[in-house]
Amino acid sequence: MSRYRTAEVPVAGGDLHVGIWEPENGTADAAPAVLMIHGVTASHLSWPLVADRLPFARVIAPDLRGRGRSNELTGSAGLDAHARDLVAVLDALGIDRAVVVGHSMGAFVALVLGERYPERVSRLVLVDGGLPLDVPDELSADEVIRLVLGPTAERLAMRFASVEAYLDFWRAHPAFTRDWTPALEAYFAYDLVGEEPELRPATRYATLEEDSMDQNTGTAIAEALARLRHPTALLTAERGLLDQLPALYAADRLPDLLSAHPGITHVAVSDVNHYTIVLSERGADAVADVVRDQLALASAAVLS
C-alpha cells in the first residue's frame, strides 16, 4: 500500500491541497511529524524523494496558496498568511509540533512560522534559503522585486501546447541536464493547469509578487532571525539556479552570514544546485540525513 495520499484542508479563502506520506509501520499519531514547505513556484511534489528516505516519519507537504492545486485560493498572501495556513494544516491532522523543513522561499516561511507559532515547531531545517540574499543595497523595493521576479514572471506568462512541450522547456534548463528522471517529469507535469493548447504554470503571479515583496522588503525575516527560537540547521547548495557559480549563498559570503547567526548549524551540500538539492537522489540523501538527525535531537529533547 502506498504511503502517499492527499487531503484538502480548509483555510481562509478556500482549501489548501496537502500531500501526506504516512509512516510505513505503526500509527500516524505515534510517528514523528515533518512539515515540508516548498519553494516560490514549486509544489508539494518537491518532496517525494526526501519523504521516501524517511519511512518512519509522517511527512506533511502542502501546496502553498497560489501554487499547485491551492492556486485558486482567494485572499491575501505573504509570509504571515502562509504561516497561518500551515498551522491550520497541523491542526487538521492533529499534529502538535513538527520538525519544519523549508526549501528556498519555503525556508523563509519556515522562519516566520517558528517566530509566530513557536509552540508548533520543534526544530528548523532551512534548505538553500532563509538567510538574507545578496541583493545590491542601492536598489529600491520595486527594483528588488523586478530583479527577483523577472525570469519567473516571463515563464508564468507563457502558454504550452502540451505537457511534453512544458517538459521540453525544462529539459533545456541547465539545472536539470544531469538529473532528468521520471520523478522530475511528474513534478513538472503537476505544475500545469488549464487545457491544451493553452496549458500554463499553476503559480499565480499576483500571489508570487505579494510573497516576494514581503520576503525581500518586509521586516518579518529580520525579526525571525533576530529572535531565532529553535535549533536551526542550514543546508546550502554548491551551485545556483542555473547550475552556476557563485551559488545562491556564495562561499565567500557564508562565513559572515553564519557568524551573524551563531545559533544556526551549517551543512554544505556538494554536487547539487538550488533545485537538485531536493529534486535529485544525492540532494535528497543529504537533506534526509539532516532531517533524520533533527528528528532524533527533537525526540531526545522531549525525553530529557
Rank of each mutant, 00 (worst) to 15 (best):
A284F: 05
R146Y: 01
S304R: 14
P231D: 12
D243L: 03
H103T: 07
H274I: 02
H266K: 07
G130P: 03
A288I: 09
E115R: 14
L113N: 03
T217L: 11
A141F: 07
H103K: 10
G218L: 10
Y190I: 01
A226C: 02
D252Y: 04
P231L: 01
V148N: 14
A141P: 04
H266N: 07
I37Y: 03
P23W: 04
T27N: 14
P255W: 10
L16Q: 07
A298H: 03
G19K: 09
D85Q: 00
E143L: 02
W180L: 06
L235Q: 09
E8V: 00
R5Q: 08
P197K: 01
G283E: 10
V290K: 10
L245M: 10
A172D: 15
G19T: 03
V278A: 12
G75C: 12
T276W: 04
L133E: 15
A83P: 02
T41N: 09
G240V: 06
V40R: 14
A286I: 11
V302Q: 15
T152K: 11
T219Y: 11
V87E: 08
I20G: 08
L258Q: 14
P262E: 15
E238M: 02
G68Q: 14
H173K: 02
G102A: 10
L192V: 01
V144K: 14
G150A: 05
N273I: 05
D214A: 08
P151G: 09
R227N: 15
V163P: 00
L297V: 00
H230C: 03
R3L: 04
F56T: 15
A286Y: 13
A153T: 11
P151N: 11
P23N: 05
R159S: 04
R5L: 06
V18D: 11
A157T: 09
V9S: 09
R67N: 15
H230Y: 01
G106F: 05
T219E: 15
N71L: 13
T217W: 14
P23T: 06
I264D: 13
D243G: 05
A77P: 10
T41K: 09
V109C: 11
F160L: 04
A42M: 08
V101Q: 14
V11N: 07
D128H: 08
L208T: 05
S43Q: 14
A220T: 11
L295P: 03
H44M: 11
R204F: 11
A206S: 11
G106D: 04
A247Y: 01
E154S: 00
E72M: 05
R146G: 13
V50A: 13
Y166G: 00
A30P: 01
A284L: 07
A42Y: 01
V144H: 06
W170P: 00
A83K: 06
I264H: 08
G13C: 10
N25E: 15
W47L: 10
G75S: 13
A161F: 01
T236N: 12
G13Y: 12
L64G: 04
D63S: 11
G94W: 00
M36C: 13
F176P: 06
A165N: 10
Q244T: 12
P262R: 12
L124G: 13
V59S: 10
G66V: 08
H261G: 03
L245Y: 06
I95S: 00
L257P: 02
D52P: 01
S104K: 09
I277D: 02
Y205K: 07
A298M: 04
A81S: 12
R123H: 11
G68W: 13
R3M: 06
A98C: 00
G13I: 07
A189E: 14
Y187V: 00
A30D: 15
